[in-house]
Design a protein around this nucleic acid. Structure first.
Length: 487
RNA sequence: CGGGAUGUGGCGCAGCUUGGUAGCGCACCUGCUUUGGGAGCAGGGGGUCGCCGGUUCGAAUCCGGCCAUCCCGACCA
């Protein structure tokens, strides 16, 4: 058993898994629900989700999408209409067999994803090329029966968004698939401060029912990959299964081409695992419920003036769109410092009688320069300068987290052209290697290294052909495949 | 489903080997003193010891069964 620090959390450096589990509870992000595999997202964690939601939703609106809501319960027979889709989801379905005290004629499944109901509705709504494209997104919850749940990373019920679009032809649908893929990449970097490894899934890792699947994979601090968002080109698979047809300009009947794309509450897990440290959470400012916490210092009458100034500063910060909070709890400053560090607040401000006299605050960054006791080096900043400079300071902090995460990822990743290098790299991060594309060969690699193909990397510098890293058959993708152990 | 572990105040645990009427830390409540890196003292409230059955004068403790949860694998955003 790794020994716990004074926060009661196992150090990240000793046991990432224990650290993660304990931190989720201690930071009050979430709790376990009474039924196995369910989670309660607590207000602090839910605020992160709301911030994620609003910023992602804005991007959907900016790319022409509208929101709608579809039913939770789906007739079992719908799932069965697309062969690959049922096969993929059958093992993880929750099925409702009774309603109103009676056994149902046809069981209903609790949606594991909504392709099928939405397919049914699209077939009703679409009849002409003039109806296309249909660009709808849904924010909802889905249920997938998980054998081994982990809060945020893999729970039986989770929250997400699923975009579903229908287009007249393949080109347009592929363009949409890639557009939303780019939105995820950009969002992950600019909001969650996570530089994603991106690319296309190999056939064996594709979404059930998709023709092509694109994925963003984040690197967590234990070197494991976390799939954080996917965008699928579904071809005409669902159009054929649900008879989604339209008449084109030439009066010919055609099936539409559909896409779907999703990002879930798993992203919160990605943020925890990508940025956190021994002291607790480290939240990127654009997802932080509190961006700046202000701690008044002083006792008795001496506390009143600093507290008033703290409130004034907070109001000014709020005026600039900064989420600021004055911690006026009846607790010692030291307690508050540790508490907010545990909760990952980007910036902390201290303001006591001495500071008030001098007209400045002390500013400490959650991640940044440390003194020899491991405590943040506190910067002295004049009141007005601090307030007006706060937005910029938060942006700089965001950039700092990106730089740190990028350096970590790159240091743990590399190109592998021989098996030993491959095995070593995959033990600590991503290995970019050539692959034959055979599912059985993927299985062998998994059995020997526990690594799986995360994506075919189409990024610069990863083009290549040659022989497979494991079996020496010719490589097939024209690009290297990023392999890693994964959540 | 396989392997491992655990169920005792809200949380974390001890007590079980060797049965005797439940204890510690944190949290909570009251009061006083405190407050620049997890404050101190004093007082106080709160538990059918996972469930069912058995052994016994007596069970948290011994025996049998069941249930649940967690961790490690197989399925997965």
């Amino acid at each position: 058993m790794a020994k716990k620090n004074q926060l009661g959390v196992t150090p990240l450096s000793e046991d990432v898994s224990a650290w993660y589990n304990e931190l989720v509870f201690k930071a009050e992000l979430a709790d376990r629900g009474p039924a196995k595999g369910t989670m309660v997202i607590r207000p602090y964690g839910y605020r992160i989700w709301e911030l994620l939601q609003s910023q992602l939703d804005q991007r959907f609106k900016d790319t022409g999408h509208v929101n709608a809501s579809f039913p939770l319960l789906i007739p079992m027979s719908y799932l069965q209409r697309e062969a690959d889709h049922v096969e993929g989801f059958a093992p993880e379905l929750a099925v409702v067999t009774h309603g109103g005290g009676k056994e149902l004629d046809e069981p209903l499944v609790v949606r594991p994803t909504s392709e099928t109901v939405i397919g049914e509705m699209y077939s009703r709504w679409i009849s002409s090329y003039r109806d296309l494209p249909v660009l709808i997104n849904a924010w909802n919850n889905v249920v997938r029966w998980e054998l081994r749940p982990r809060i945020f990373l893999r729970t039986t019920e989770f929250l997400w968004q699923e975009g579903h679009t229908a287009h007249a032809d393949e080109d347009e649908a592929m363009e949409e698939t890639l557009r939303m893929f780019d939105v995820y990449v950009e969002f992950a970097l600019n909001v969650a401060a996570i530089p994603m490894v991106k690319g296309e899934k190999t056939p064996g890792e594709r979404f059930a029912g998709a023709v092509r699947t694109f994925t963003i994979e984040g690197m967590m601090q234990d070197g494991k990959a976390l799939q954080s968002g996917t965008s699928h080109y579904l071809g005409q698979n669902f159009a054929k299964a649900f008879d989604i047809t339209f008449q084109d300009e030439n009066n010919e009947l055609q099936h539409v081409h559909t896409t779907s794309w999703g990002m879930s509450t798993r992203m919160i897990g990605a943020v925890i695992l990508a940025h956190g440290d021994d002291a607790g959470l480290v939240l990127p400012p654009r997802l932080a419920p509190i961006q700046i916490v202000i701690v008044p210092i002083g006792r008795g009458e001496q506390a009143e003036a600093p507290l008033a100034k703290c409130r004034e500063l907070a109001a000014q910060l709020e005026g600039l769109g900064v989420r600021a909070h004055v911690d006026d709890r009846d607790a010692s400053p030291g307690f508050k410092f540790n508490d907010w560090e545990l909760k990952g607040v980007p910036l902390r401000v201290e303001l006591g009688p001495r500071d008030l006299e001098a007209g400045h605050v002390l500013v400490a960054q959650r991640v940044g320069e440390r003194d020899d006791k491991g405590r943040p080096v506190k910067e002295t900043v004049e009141f007005e300068e601090f307030v007006t400079g706060a937005p910029e300071r938060l942006d700089a902090y965001h950039d700092q987290l990106v730089a740190r995460a990028t350096a970590f990822r790159d240091e743990r990743s590399g190109v592998a052209d021989d098996w030993d290098t491959f095995a070593e790299l995959v033990g600590r991060g991503f290995a970019y290697a050539l692959h034959c594309g055979e599912p059985s060969c993927e299985d062998d690699i998994k059995a020997e290294t526990s690594a799986t193909p995360r994506c075919i990397s189409t990024e610069d510098g990863f083009a290549g052909e040659g022989t497979c890293i494991r079996c020496d058959r010719p490589s097939v993708y024209g690009h290297r495949v990023a392999f890693a152990r994964a959540y």
